[in-house]
Amino acid sequence: MLTIPCPFCGERDEAEFRYGGEALQEIPQAGASDAEWADYLFNRDNPKGLVHERWCHSYGCNQWFQVVRDTVTHRIHAVYRVGEARPVLDDVDGASADTGG
C-alpha cells in the first residue's frame, strides 16, 4: 500500500489512485511497421529497479502524472507531470538496478 505524492495534491494513499502501467515514450508514427506497432502495444520493459509509470489521482484531482518507482523496494524516487521532461535522478543510491526507460 504505497504513499504516492500527487504533484497537485501532495501525499495520498494508494487507494485514491488508479494505476496506468509503464509510461511509454511515444505512440509510433503512421509509417510504423507491424512489428513496431506490436512492440508498442504488447511489450513492456518490466525492469527490476526503477520504472517510470503512470498514475491517475482518480479519487482526488483526477490528473494523470508519472511516478519513478523502484520495483524492488517500492521506494518512489520522483514524480513529474505530463509533458514535463523525465527527471534526472542524481540521488538513486537506494535504487536496485539500472534506471528503466
Binding site: R18, G20, I27, S58, N62, Q63, W64, V82
Partner: peptide
C-alpha cells in the same frame, strides 16, 4: 469517461 480523460490529458494535451 475515464478513458476519454486519460487520452485528453496524456496524449491529446
Amino acid at each position: 469517461a475515464a478513458w476519454l480523460e486519460e487520452w485528453r490529458q496524456c496524449e491529446y494535451f
